[in-house]
């Protein structure tokens, strides 16, 4: 077990390193290597100015040496120099330096991240149990009015783009009918009540949307599981139908459900552009869009890296959870 966890961790770390190499290669070498300089000189750019800027910022040094600096920054932090003079310090884990904002990318990510954490985990808190509950109820009463309603709603919701559903619900539930408080980001440390109120609308709308998608998965898992031989065996023991469904059938459904959810959470932590835009809160998605608009390459690279980290983390957690949920998994 410990060997398994250690091995998974090592694997995750090596994937992470590969991601850093790839991100660095994509954003700071090749055709992208002069982007920072061009961004700083803007319309006044000439080849000479670009070269001078690159030299000033140390961006004309060999790629290996720059990569070494980058890695050192991630691990231990580094000084930002201009003409050999220290102009700023980028604390570890330094994901890069935005010369436009004169700010470390890590700081910018740290400001944006709480928004995404709140959105994703708040909504997951709602849709994980709700999707499971409704999915099981729908699957075990196949053909009932409840089942038909849930399948119908999830068909409609699932076939509409998320941004349309979210936008419409936002307009009606919040702006038109005032059923939910307006959404905004107030830091948790500043005003917990305001934080909760500001996110409530997002959690409900994003959470219900996801729940409707998961209902379909769980329903299908459940219908398949309920017709298996081992569920028939469970029923033949004389235990209650509730135990048959919630203990025997659900037990077998849990592993694939957790996999789906884990990967989904990893993905949406990396930034949910639509949610942030529609509900007017700025997280990683907004940061990515803003830096794209300003061609702020170090920030784009930083958000890409953060996204990759979340997906690697989600994979790792799902792998570890699987051991708990499904003991037949071979620990190799």
């Amino acid at each position: 077990m410990i060997v398994y966890i250690a091995r998974r961790l090592l694997l995750a770390i090596s994937v992470l390193f590969a991601t850093i190499v790839l991100t660095f290669g994509l954003f700071f070498t090749g055709p992208a290597k002069d982007a920072v300089a061009y961004q700083l000189c803007g319309t006044k750019c000439t080849n000479q100015i670009v070269e001078q800027t690159n030299h000033r910022l140390g961006l004309d040094r060999p790629v290996i040496s720059q990569f070494g600096d980058y890695i050192k920054g991630v691990v231990a932090g580094r000084d930002i120099k201009s003409d050999g003079v220290v102009t700023g310090h980028c604390d570890a884990p330094c994901l890069g330096w935005s010369y436009v904002q004169s700010q470390s990318v890590t700081t910018m990510v740290k400001q944006a991240l709480p928004v995404n954490l709140a959105i994703v985990f708040g909504a997951a808190f709602l849709y994980i149990p709700l999707g499971l509950l409704l999915g099981v109820m729908s699957g075990r009463t196949r053909g009932s009015p409840l089942d038909r309603t849930l399948v119908g709603v999830s068909q409609v919701v699932g076939n509409m783009p998320y941004y349309a559903v979210a936008l419409i619900l936002n307009l009606y539930l919040i702006f038109q009918w005032h059923l939910l408080p307006g959404t905004q980001y107030i830091p948790l440390t500043q005003d917990p009540g305001g934080w909760f109120k500001g996110f409530l609308g997002i959690w409900l709308i994003f959470g219900l949307f996801n729940a409707m998608l998961y209902v379909r998965y769980v329903r299908t898992f459940m219908i398949n599981t309920l017709s298996t031989d081992f569920v028939r065996t469970a029923r033949s023991k004389g235990i209650s139908e509730r135990k048959v469904v919630w203990n025997h059938a659900l037990r077998a459904t849990l592993a694939p459900y957790l996999t789906l959810i884990g990967l989904d959470i990893g993905l949406s932590l990396a930034g949910s552009i639509f949610t942030e835009q529609i509900f007017n809160v700025s997280g990683l998605g907004q940061l990515a869009i803003l830096s794209l608009r300003q061609s702020d390459l170090p920030v784009i690279a930083g958000t890409v890296l953060v996204g990759a980290v979340f997906i690697i983390l989600a994979n790792l957690i799902v792998d570890l959870l699987y051991v708990v949920v499904d003991p037949t998994v071979k620990l190799t």
């Binding site: 298996t228 031989d229 081992f230 028939r232 065996t233 469970a234 029923r235 033949s236 023991k237 004389g238 025997h248 037990r251 077998a252 499904d326 003991p327 037949t328």
Partner: peptide, 20 residues
Amino acid sequence: RSATAAMIFQDPQSSLHPLK
């Protein structure tokens, strides 16, 4: 079930819960 009449199924591979 099981108390008065019990049943043994054809395929023991699929008839026992794989995770219990």
